[in-house]
């Protein structure tokens, strides 16, 4: 039994999710190989070799994998994957895009968003926006899993695994990268932050999100949002927390002007401590909040910034 983990990286460094996925793989109790598929991805591969639990790093370095096009990367992983008992990737937009394609090519099911590993063939995952937790058992010859990062610790570094170069190029020619608009921020990433402050429709507009900046600076927090705030164009899509956005579980989550719809709760209710700031004392967010302040966010936020 050997496990293949697909690294998530931007060619120059590994994403935090990779360390979490390796940790999840290590819980299966077998050898772990980590695949770095990219273009000019030597630095990411060197980092991969340092992850504890990894026995071998496989590197596929080619222009075909430069932008993680699902068609090409999945063809590579499906070819490699035949020799493995499990194939894991993070349940990020990259993993979710690519891994189901791998599963289909291997003619096996995928188990999405695994939050706990019960045994080598039995896994725990949320369904219905986290309102039910299913334990499922797979009889497939290869188990293909995406792993929810917020549910696992990060594998430590300090290893020096062997690096093996692969000479497999899969260019399907059906897709082409055109462009990318990445949100630039000095703040920690939402899925890695220890503290998150999120704004909802109650923020009224995008300019008012500046009220969250001072607090985020003081707490070294990431800034998130509800779907309503994203749909209204206050903030970019990558800030959406929830069932169909990012799943987070920081030490502290502060929800500001967010009502607490089940789809939002699905993305943050595993946070250690939840604070809700809302003018409506009946808002459902108070049912999951450890601490609540009922009042106008436009008065409370400046006070909070000053008090920190």
């Amino acid at each position: 039994m050997t496990i293949l983990v697909i690294a998530e990286h931007n060619n120059s460094s590994l994403k935090a999710d990779t360390y979490k996925t390796v940790q999840a793989a290590s819980l299966l109790g077998a050898e772990v190989h980590l695949l770095v598929a990219g273009e000019q991805c030597q630095t990411a591969a060197a980092q991969a070799a340092e992850v504890v639990g990894v026995t071998k790093v496989l590197v596929a370095d080619d222009a075909a994998y430069g932008h993680q096009l699902a068609e090409n990367v999945a063809a590579l992983v499906a070819e490699l994957g035949k020799g493995y008992s499990h194939i894991l990737a993070a349940a990020t937009t990259t993993g979710k895009n690519m891994l189901p394609r791998v599963a289909a090519l291997l003619d096996v099911a995928q188990i999405s968003d695994v939050i706990a590993i019960a045994s080598a063939d039995t896994f725990v995952r949320p369904v219905y926006a986290g309102n039910a937790i299913a334990t499922v058992q797979s009889a497939d010859s290869i188990k293909v899993l995406t792993v929810r990062s917020s549910a696992f610790a990060a594998a430590p570094t300090g290893n020096s695994a062997a690096i093996e170069k692969l000479d497999i190029v899969k260019e399907l020619g059906v897709s082409r990268f055109v462009s990318e608009e990445l949100t630039k921020s000095e703040r920690p990433e939402l899925t890695a932050a220890k503290v998150i402050i999120s704004g909802g429709r109650g923020m009224q507009n995008g300019e008012n999100f500046a009220l969250l900046n001072g607090i985020a600076d003081k707490l070294n927090a990431a800034i998130g949002a509800s779907r309503a705030a994203v749909d209204a164009g206050f903030v970019p899509n990558d800030m959406q927390v929830g069932q169909t956005g990012k799943i987070v579980a920081p030490d502290l989550y502060i929800a500001v002007g967010i009502s607490g719809a089940i789809q939002h709760l699905a993305g943050m209710k595993d946070s250690k401590v939840i604070v809700a700031i809302n003018k409506d004392a009946e808002a459902p967010i108070f049912q999951v909040a450890d601490y609540g302040l009922v009042g106008d966010l436009f008065t409370i936020l400046p006070e909070l910034e000053a008090a920190l």
Binding site: N131, I133, Q137, D140, Q287, I300
Partner: peptide, 26 residues
């Protein structure tokens, strides 16, 4: 090939407290 063994309710959070002001929250 995938069998559901059980479906459970998630752990529910304890109801929290509503505080009087920002100083108390901090």
């Amino acid at each position: 090939k995938v069998q559901t063994l059980s479906v459970k309710a998630p752990e529910s959070r304890k109801a929290g407290v509503v505080l009087s002001d920002v100083a108390e929250l901090v």
